[in-house]
Write a protein that binds this DNA or RNA. Structure first.
Length: 416
RNA sequence: CGGGGUGUGGCGCAGUCUGGUAGCGCGGGCGGUUUGGGACCGUCAGGUCGAAGGUUCGAAUCCUUUCACCCCGACCA
């Protein structure tokens, strides 16, 4: 992508109505646009990051047998009444409206009910099970107060997977696979070392759920953590009983501030019974399907990544989710430089390397500052100097000094 | 939802206390000098001061109502 053709631009000043680092940087760099409190649009560069994260999630969901689909944002009231979650006193984040004919509807803050109800059409025999489905959906939640930029919005993208199993044993086996799949996602986006599977409250259905908590000062949760045992406990469930259950003592645990990037639940048979999702087993008996739910906040994850890696110059994206791998800065505007940079841009993109090509007629300092702010992993410079030396100047975002490489080595380093 | 703060060109702000018809920086247009870490000179465009109502000869400024945004807390499958 040529920066001269991109309509977004960077800003020197961050908006003062945002204090969250992720929102300030993403807005300064032109990745997102704030429509209103807790509601953000994703501009081309931010959209690219979001799509890159989604692709990683998609691959991991697919690897454990997940089939992607997309449910509706508009939902039926009757469904939620069956599970007693329509009442605002029970669920306080509902957006609701009414059709012209007077029918009450809700806007999806979660999809457990509709997706489980829908599955009644397809799951009737043990031969139909297990089934694993997932989607990337914009969830709408009428939060009393949204905060922390894209980490807690009223409108946000979530990957939610649901598992339908014949038995508790089968469910448990998949639950463990899904846990590993999510851990792999966090590993791949660079948060593996600071993201922990965490014991949390299980709500109405089970004693515990599991959260994935990433250590960051920008987080809203507090967890007690053993790095050695790779185990964490949300403060809301910390008790002697829980410590005994997990066979760990309080003084092995350190207190850390975290952001919840994922949350997985076992529903058992409860929701299937409420929504009448039964199947006929091998032995001819009718049984409720065992349900699990696995959520990962995609937009929140993007915000957490900004928070965790940014430095005083701007954002720092891991290679595999950056809006581009290379920021190609053309220094000087003489024809020889322009044509050399054009040619390099074509060659790299031809090899499948994603390049943000700064072909604007602005001073070098501005290009370097923008490359840093946007957090592009590699900065590649073409100038009179590099042309006369027959080499290219490559600098990693996280390193201070550049290296001079010939074209062959350049392409090797960039992995094509 | 309780407490606190803020709304003035696209962005960041001053002016409000003490009413006299809006100013600065960034950004944008044009002309020129520049070109390896956000350059500089000249020039031009752009705002009925969040909205509504009131007081006054006159309101960004005073009064009333209202909307929005931010922070702290509460809440948070």
């Amino acid at each position: 992508m040529r920066l001269s053709k991109l309509f977004t631009k960077t800003r020197k000043d961050a908006p003062t109505d945002e204090t969250a680092k992720n929102a300030q940087l993403l807005i300064k760099a032109g990745f997102i646009h704030k429509e209103m409190a807790g509601v953000y649009a994703y501009l081309p560069l931010g959209f690219k990051v979001l799509e890159n994260i989604k692709q990683i999630v998609r691959e991991e969901m697919s690897a454990v047998g997940g089939h992607e689909l997309i449910m509706t944002a508009i939902q039926r009231k009757e469904l939620w009444e069956k599970t007693d979650r329509w009442d605002d006193a029970k669920v306080d984040v509902w957006f609701k409206s009414t059709l012209k004919n007077g029918t009450d509807i809700g806007f999806g803050w979660s999809h457990e009910e509709p997706i489980t109800d829908m599955m009644r059409n397809y799951l009737s025999s043990y031969r139909d099970l297990p089934a694993y489905v997932h989607q990337f959906q914009t969830k709408l939640r009428n939060e009393l107060r949204s905060k922390s930029g894209i980490m807690r919005g009223r409108e946000f993208v979530m990957n939610d997977m649901y598992s339908y199993s014949v038995s508790e044993e089968a469910h448990k086996a998949f639950y463990d696979k899904a846990t590993v799949a999510y851990l792999r996602v966090f590993e791949r986006v660079g948060l593996g070392d600071i993201t922990f599977l965490t014991f949390a409250s299980g709500g109405a259905f089970t004693q515990f759920s599991h959260e994935f908590q990433t250590i960051t000062a920008a987080g809203e949760d507090t967890v007690y953590l053993s790095r050695k045992k790779k185990l964490a406990i949300n403060e809301e469930v910390l008790s002697d009983e829980v410590l005994a259950h997990l066979d760990i003592s309080r003084d092995e645990l350190e207190e850390v501030k975290t952001a919840e990037v994922g949350n997985i639940f076992s529903f058992g048979a409860t929701k299937s019974e409420q929504l009448d999702l039964y199947f006929v087993d091998e032995d001819g008996t009718r049984k409720p399907v065992i349900l699990g739910s696995y959520g990962l906040g995609v937009t929140r994850l993007m915000g957490v990544i900004v928070e965790c890696f940014a430095d005083d110059k701007g954002m720092v994206w891991p290679d595999n989710i950056a809006p581009a791998l290379v920021y190609l800065a053309r220094i000087g505007d003489i024809p020889a430089v322009a044509s050399a940079a054009d040619e390099l841009y074509d060659q790299l993109t031809g090899k499948g390397i994603s390049v943000l090509y700064d072909d604007r007629d602005v001073r070098p300092g501005e290009k370097f500052a923008d490359a840093d702010l946007m957090g592009i992993p590699y900065r590649l410079v073409v100038s009179e100097k590099t042309i006369s030396s027959g080499q290219y100047e490559l600098k990693k975002r996280i390193e201070d000094s550049p290296k001079l490489l010939d074209k062959e080595n350049l392409i090797k380093v960039l992995g094509a």
